[in-house]
């Protein structure tokens, strides 16, 4: 396979088997440098496993590829130096202070001018005045910002962020994403896994996995258009118990509440209208709307069978 210098991630046919379970099953990703990509899929669909293979933490059972031009099978040491990987638990050491955590990372990477570097990082984080607090005492949002600072301190070219905003409040999530875009503007390539649709919409492109396979990939608008989905929205006092009655009706692929409204989607307009007429339109105002990314993903998830994590 020839190296393509324009690609930050270039992997083909990645497969990972754990004992008899196939967690990732033939995933191809060609991600250009400088972009922000979203990595989506239900629980257990293989996002974390794929990311770990990309940065050389797991050995693929089959497949090959390059990350920042380095072979993922043979050059994991060099990949580690050039990437920043924020793990899903992304806990840095809770029994070290904020400063000690950063100093530890700086030492491991043998950064010159260590103290200055840590001081600067604390400054940009806005944590200078709390640098001697234990990292474990930080709120969820701050923990994630500390982790992000720690994985970017050695100035990597590629960031791999695994569900960085899980369990973080909406404002902190926005701040976090502003930071991601700032880093991207400065030239970093960022691959972010997430379950949030609003975050997915802030990505240049989306990769959607299910059962370890790549189901769909592209910019948000293309994915919506390419899904061929028709969506109706119902509002009003009576919508609360409509979903149950619509689920499973012919032509209805999913019926789900978005806030107070009910979205019903399916591949064919006429079949959907028939289903809605079937339960009567009293007590609710129906209108056809543009399917949202979430409508598309709920449908994709339903088609692929929901939660795929091994509970055994």
């Amino acid at each position: 396979m020839t190296a393509r210098p324009d690609l930050a991630i270039d992997v083909r046919g990645l497969v990972k088997r754990f004992d008899d379970k196939t967690a990732v099953d033939g995933v191809d990703i060609q991600m250009p440098r400088g972009q922000v990509w979203g990595f989506l899929g239900p629980n257990g669909s293989g996002k974390t496993t794929t990311i770990r293979m990309i940065c050389g933490l797991l050995r693929p059972s089959a497949g090959e590829g390059r990350c920042l031009g380095f072979d993922i099978l043979k050059e994991s040491a060099r990949i580690k130096l050039a990437t920043g990987y924020m793990t899903q638990k992304s806990s840095f050491w809770g029994d070290l202070t904020i400063r000690e955590n950063l100093e530890f990372v700086a030492r491991l990477y043998q950064m010159p001018r260590l103290r200055r570097r840590v001081d600067e990082t604390l400054e940009t984080l806005g944590l200078s005045h709390r640098q001697h607090q234990l990292a474990g005492a930080l709120s969820g949002g701050w923990k994630q910002r500390l982790a992000l600072a720690a994985v970017t301190m050695h100035e990597p070219k590629l960031l791999l962020l695994d569900e960085p905003t899980a369990g973080v409040d909406p404002q902190a999530r926005r701040d976090f994403w502003d930071e991601i875009h700032r880093l991207s503007a400065a030239g970093l390539t960022v691959l972010v896994s997430t379950h949030y649709m609003d975050e997915a919409e802030r990505c240049d492109r989306i990769v959607y996995l299910a059962h370890g396979r790549l189901v769909t990939e592209g910019p948000v608008a293309e994915i919506i258009a390419g899904s061929g989905l028709v969506t109706f929205r119902a509002r009003g006092a009576g919508v609360r118990d409509l979903a149950e009655r619509l689920r499973g009706a012919p032509g209805v692929e999913h019926a789900a509440y978005f806030g107070a409204a009910l979205h019903v989607s399916g591949p064919e307009r006429s079949a959907l209208e028939q289903a809605i007429d079937g339960i009567g339109r009293d007590g609710a105002v129906w209108e056809e709307v543009e399917p949202s990314l979430e409508d598309v993903f709920i449908t994709l998830m339903a088609r692929s069978g929901g939660d795929q994590r091994d509970h055994g």
Binding site: L57, A77, T83, Y85, T87, Q88, K89, S90, S91, G94
Partner: peptide, 13 residues
């Protein structure tokens, strides 16, 4: 157990 092993392994140690 705390998941920090993955951090250690992802860094150059």
């Amino acid at each position: 157990e705390r998941g920090t092993m993955e951090n250690l392994l992802a860094m150059p140690a």
